[in-house]
């Protein structure tokens, strides 16, 4: 039986899709059969970030409406036999995501996979709500910035009150804080909220801190999740985050500003 994980944030553009793509890829590379689902109906992007945009035939809404089977709609990753992607529909609207329909697809996915990652759209409306409703665990993606932190807090409230687990009175959804686009230099200068600040405000366990990194853009250019770029700080941070999620003890890296590199010293970096 799969664990269903929602990657959510409330605020837009904080790194949910980047995180979903790397999380799915990382879990698959660690041997877990994983499906990543794009819930952003009308504005799909996960296919581009994971480099499968040319292979989308059927989408999530086709499966919900019985126009295709789940098997037909799941796109297998080119590099991993354990990684599958379900694209969002580009043409329907969010009302196509009915609770019954999404529930049926989730049940089918649970039976097949070890992990189901739900990439939530921004906001707290239908698409975002459906992405979180069936979740067992939540990755709350937050940037060290006031509006993002407030929105994350709002989302935590909704998870606790309106998810299926909340409604059925079972165990509550397990929440993980994923702090992304972290700029240690600016934190050191007092220009940006620190990890500690955000942890204190949101009061949920920290799973990982992903540094602001130019590698994220080059990875999305190429359609290869940044976790596959093991030379990059963001790739390593996502690798650590997954190890932690799977129960390993990994110290947090990239929390302090870069030490002056030799190169930087020669050229008078200060």
């Amino acid at each position: 039986m799969a664990k269903v994980i929602v990657v959510t944030s409330g605020k837009g553009g904080v790194g949910k899709t980047t995180t979903s793509a790397s999380l799915g890829t990382g879990l698959a590379d660690r041997g877990h059969k994983t499906a990543v689902i794009d819930f952003d109906v009308g504005l799909r992007n996960l296919d581009l970030i994971m480099g499968v945009e040319r292979r989308v035939v059927y989408d999530f809404v086709n499966v919900i409406q019985g126009e295709a089977t789940l098997k037909q709609a799941l796109i297998k990753d080119k590099q991993s036999d354990k990684l599958f992607i379900l694209a969002a529909s580009q043409t329907r609207d969010k009302d196509a995501l009915t609770q019954d329909g999404v529930g049926r697809v989730m049940d089918e996915l649970r039976a097949e996979f070890d992990y189901v990652i739900c990439d939530s759209p921004a906001g707290i409306e239908k698409g975002a709500f459906m992405a979180m409703y069936f979740a067992d665990e939540a990755f709350v993606v937050t940037n060290p910035e006031v509006s993002s932190v407030r929105d994350s807090d709002r989302v935590l409230g909704i998870l606790a009150a309106k998810s299926r687990r909340a409604e059925q009175g079972g165990d509550r959804i397990k929440e993980h804080l994923v702090l992304t686009r972290y700029n240690a230099e600016r934190v050191a200068k007092g220009e940006m909220l620190s990890v500690e600040d955000v942890k204190e405000i949101l009061a949920i366990p920290l799973l990982g801190v992903i540094p602001e990194s130019p590698a994220v853009l080059s990875s999305s250019n190429a359609g290869v999740p940044v976790i596959r770029d093991m030379t990059s700080d963001a790739g390593l941070a996502y690798t650590d985050l997954i190890a932690r999620f799977l129960g390993e003890d990994r110290p947090h890296r990239f929390l302090a500003p870069h030490k002056k590199s030799l190169f930087g010293k020669w050229f008078g970096e200060r």
Binding site: D59, S220, N221
Partner: peptide, 20 residues
């Protein structure tokens, strides 16, 4: 350049009115 090439194809399909 890779990004641009990928986008040209994707956007061309998107503009046909249906997602794919």
């Amino acid at each position: 350049q890779t990004a641009k090439e990928r986008l040209l194809i994707t956007v061309a399909h998107q503009r046909q009115g249906e997602g794919n």
